[in-house]
Design a protein around this nucleic acid. Structure first.
Length: 231
DNA sequence: GACCAGGCACATC
DNA sequence: GATGTGCATGGT
């Protein structure tokens, strides 16, 4: 087995251990694809608990709808999403996303999601306020297309286990997972969610880190490096 | 009261 | 292209 095969096998064992520990995460925690899009913007550098409050406000208005958000006053939108922080910035970003959706696709998410993944990603990234993680979250969890979402916890785990690819930028890490895993929506969906779960449980909690379900793979990881290019 | 959270754009060098 | 900074609330 070559080295990439070994890594793929290890990653699946990681996934199995995480899944056993945390259970299937049932992501994305949202009632509709549009809610995923809104949540993806609101959760930028923000704890999900606070996003839940903001989304509840939008639902109560009710305003969790492309056209309503499109027509809503910017200041009013900012006030509704205040609990999730950066509310002025995020109100503008939501407006950008919704304006694109309404003006280019008549408010129809299915129309937005029609292009192939690479083209859709480029289109989303062209919207000010939609970066790589936000775009990929929308593609995976709202459009149901297989793309691996990389976040701070993903980087933390890879670094912690010495599995970081040559370059540690977003696209390189994403390519690493695409190269070593079966590219399916189901796997990418829950794998990313498991990284978030293990991050919540152990990242920055060094005293507890020895209880992390990934610790038992240390020896396997060392073996892979000893084996080098083949095994 | 300090520190952190499921980023991103923009300024500066 | 690498690095620094502003954005802001709520939980621990």
């Amino acid at each position: 087995m070559n080295r990439s095969g070994s890594i793929g096998k290890l990653l699946m064992e990681w996934y199995g251990a995480l899944r056993e520990r945390f259970g299937h995460r049932n992501w994305w925690p949202a009632g509709s694809p549009f809610e995923v899009c809104v949540g993806a913007v609101l959760t930028q550098n923000t704890a999900w608990k606070n996003v839940v409050k903001a989304i509840a406000n939008l639902k109560a208005e009710p305003a969790l709808d492309p056209l309503r958000l499109y027509e809503m006053d910017l200041m009013q939108l900012a006030e509704l999403i205040r609990p999730c922080g950066y509310y002025n910035v995020k109100a503008a970003r939501l407006k950008n996303l919704v304006s694109h959706l309404v003006e280019k696709h008549g408010g129809d998410l299915d129309a937005l999601f029609l292009p192939p993944t690479a083209a859709l990603r480029e289109e989303l990234l062209s919207i000010n306020g939609v970066g790589k993680e936000t775009a990929d979250s929308i593609i995976l969890y709202a459009a149901y297309k297989p793309i691996f979402v990389v976040d701070a916890y993903t980087k933390w785990v890879l670094e912690r286990h010495g599995l970081m690819p040559e370059r540690n930028d977003y696209d390189s890490i994403q390519a690493f997972f695409h190269a070593n895993l079966e590219c399916t929506v189901e796997l990418f969906n829950d794998f990313h969610a498991q990284f978030v779960a293990v991050g919540h449980a152990f990242c920055r909690k060094t005293p507890k880190c020895d209880q992390c379900p990934l610790e038992r793979f240390r020896e396997r990881e060392a073996e892979i490096w000893r084996a080098g290019g083949s095994s």
